[in-house]
Amino acid sequence: MNHVTIAASEKAFEQLFKAVRDNFTVAKSDSANFGPFSASYAIQLHLAGGSIQLNNDGTIEIKTVDVVFDVLKVQICFDLPGFCIPSFCIIPDPWNGCLVGFPGFCIGGPVCLPLDLSGLVSEINDIKARLNPKYFVDPGRLPTWSDLDAEFAGKPNQWQIYIDPDWVSVDPIDIPASVGNMVENALRNAINNLFPGWLPGWAKDLIWAFLGPLLGVLKGVLGFLDSFEDFLQDLLGNQFDILGFIETAVADYLASKYPIYQFEDPYPILPQDGLLIPVKIPLRNLTATVNTNEMIVLADVG
């Protein structure tokens, strides 16, 4: 029989998981050129919610964890196809020339559409994991140090128990249909910025009529067939592989960054008492597993 047994109910385990979950945050930004257009993004996210199920085969299933994008900003840049409105005479001069004329102008060139989708929520639909105890030796610990030297130097060895995922599955980012209006407005603003300042309103109306529906313009330039939200979902999820990044970041975090349970080894059972050194016991053969009822940690006193 093992010398030490510690068990935590599923309810207690959920509290441990919440602490791990709430400490997670990650940020990333990137940009890429996709031929007809280029795009960049910046994200920062944290996790919330979720449910835990412990299984008799030693696995932990974590479901429906919200991925909350505190920051999700995308910018898409492309060259608006150029076209020109030639000059023409509005009030001709009956003797010679033109009394009032329209000088003509050309628009087109680089346009960038900034989209701020911060606050969007995606979901980790499933994490399947097992507990994995690791023995951590502080890299700053000198080989000549005793365990007590290491403790006094703030670099004690540690047992660390991680939730080690077999897989993490993140749902595609659910881009709302309203993003279509957002991008239309962004494009309208961008094109408005291309107009010369002297351009009268009626001329602008004329140009807007010429351009037709703006999403149609975007379809032509960016080359998507269906909705803009599908295009954006594909851009973020597949082209930039944000989903893969989140899956990797969560898996890496759980497996090696934030243990669900850690303690010093040797473990101090009596504190320092004046000049008397603390009394510490080495814990060996540590195992950690779960069943449907609880998490069980076993160890021997070395």
Binding site: H3, T5, I6, S9
Partner: peptide
């Protein structure tokens, strides 16, 4: 029977471990 059937945290030290301690 689970260790935590009637509680949320359970800890036990076996006498062999206590003697090593």
């Amino acid at each position: 029977m689970a260790f935590t059937d009637h509680c949320d945290l359970y800890a036990a030290v076996h006498e062999e471990g206590a003697n090593r301690l």
